[in-house]
């Protein structure tokens, strides 16, 4: 046995303990009335008071509702978008064209949200490109980027623009694994393109779809931070999600224990959802991740 191997593991292990698992223990402040001046240890215990407060907090209700609506829209539109794009790309025969398109559609994934929103602002903002054209032609300008009524679909569109291309990678990898002989046999049996899609392609990548859906449900209450934080000018009523809520309540307003309680509820809910989705997937599709 080579003891030196442990020396390789040690620095990383210590990092995980201090910067990942130790803060998880810090969630005890959710059961305390934590004050930054007297520290975690000395702050008094308050039992479940912070959790009871969550139920009656109107701002929390808004943040939870926004999060659920946005997640619903994401599941409906942003989740299938990469699948559709992957099927389209997969149907291209010319490898060079396919790779050229891939390299274009992956690109926005690597840009920060600040850049993405700056670009959208430039195109669709108050004095952006679209409104300048409208004004020049004598039309009324339209309010897209700062309109609480359409904020949610807008942020879903931004997500699709940024990440749908990148999302195709995993589907494309799965599509190449499908046995080409299946298609050949289906053609001999007289199956057209549509039937081959329904009966071979989609079942062939079912396990990947189920896997991604399970992971997705686990992070159901985590829809992101930056895109909402950056566009919060549209009003908290429309743009506040749980992540930004925790940040503003805790870090900005100093309501540490309450914010930690919200974070904890969310983490536990996420874990429960992952196990529940996994159980359902095993039961109905005979697939699962563990």
């Amino acid at each position: 046995m080579n003891r030196a191997v442990y020396l390789f593991i040690l620095p990383g292990f210590l990092w995980y303990v201090v910067f990942h698992y130790l803060p998880i223990l810090g969630n005890v402040i959710a059961f305390k009335d934590y004050s930054i001046f007297i520290g975690i240890r000395e702050s008094p215990w308050v039992g479940l008071q912070n959790f009871r407060d969550i139920l009656t907090d109107p701002a929390f209700e808004v943040a939870l509702r926004n999060t659920l609506i946005i997640e619903g829209l994401q599941l409906l539109f942003a989740f299938p978008a990469p699948l559709a794009l992957a099927l389209l790309l997969n149907s291209l025969i010319n490898e060079r064209v396919k790779r050229g398109i891939q390299s274009v559609v992956y690109l926005p994934h690597f840009l920060s949200w600040v850049i993405v929103i700056a670009i959208w602002q430039q195109l669709f903002g108050g004095d952006g490109f679209l409104n300048q054209i409208l004004l020049n032609r004598g039309f009324e300008p339209v309010n897209i980027m700062n309109n609480p009524d359409i904020f949610k679909p807008l942020v879903v569109l931004q997500t699709i623009w940024k990440d749908a291309g990148w999302g195709t990678i995993i589907f494309l990898a799965a599509l190449t694994k499908i046995d080409a002989q299946l298609y050949e046999a289906a053609v001999i049996d007289g199956a057209g393109g549509w039937r081959r899609l329904i009966n071979i392609t989609l079942p062939g990548i079912r396990s990947v779809i189920v896997l991604l859906l399970i992971l997705r449900l686990g992070s159901m209450l985590t829809v992101g931070f930056e895109q909402y934080f950056l566009q919060r000018g549209v009003g908290a009523e429309a743009a506040e999600v749980l992540d930004t809520f925790v940040y503003f309540r805790g870090v900005v307003n100093g309501d540490w224990s309450f914010a930690a309680a919200v974070g904890l509820v969310r983490a536990i809910f996420g874990a429960v959802m992952i196990f529940a989705a996994n159980w359902l997937a095993k039961r109905f599709f005979d697939e699962g991740i563990f």
Binding site: H20, P23, N27, I36, V246, W256, A260, G263, A271, I274
Partner: peptide, 20 residues
Amino acid sequence: VVLGALLIAPGIIPSYLLIK
């Protein structure tokens, strides 16, 4: 220890308090 970190995130508030 490594894989568990993918499932459980520490959360914004405790991470901030640790850095502080």
